[in-house]
Amino acid sequence: MARKLTINKFGKVINPIRHAIAFEGRWGRPPTTKTFIAEQIRKVDLRPVKAVNVRFDPFHPNAQAVREFMFITSFPKIRKTNLKCTFKCDVVNDRSEPSIFIDFENKQKCIFKAGSLNILDILQNYNKVVEPILQKYQEDQPKPFEVKVERKRRR
């Protein structure tokens, strides 16, 4: 005899043997490009960076990536990581490739030629470049002076 199906108040069939079957699959929605970009934005750190110069032609077919990079680096949360870092933007009209010039404090330089780059590519590569410098930077930085506070003995 077939088992009677029970229906909950939302009109869905309740599986009577639900607990017997192990759950398979992912919880929540699958990741999209937006989530990947958000993941990279959280990692962006400007501590070892001295200056960021951006040059682009607004009529270039792929000026979007550089403009989005400019927008992302203007977030107050990212700007607060290094207040001394300077930002400059040149708008040109020669159909040249949009590019980002990054000067580090250890006199290294990094150039992104973003003619065919995505914003995700730029952020991933930026973080890839910055991470080892940042590690070294943190090691060289002197540790904060620790003050020992002695408790007063009770008399």
Partner: peptide
Amino acid sequence: PTFTLLAAIVDGSFLSVSQ
């Protein structure tokens, strides 16, 4: 400082920043 000029239309003609 938070805005950068890209282009403008003046009297019906599209001009870039250098123009």
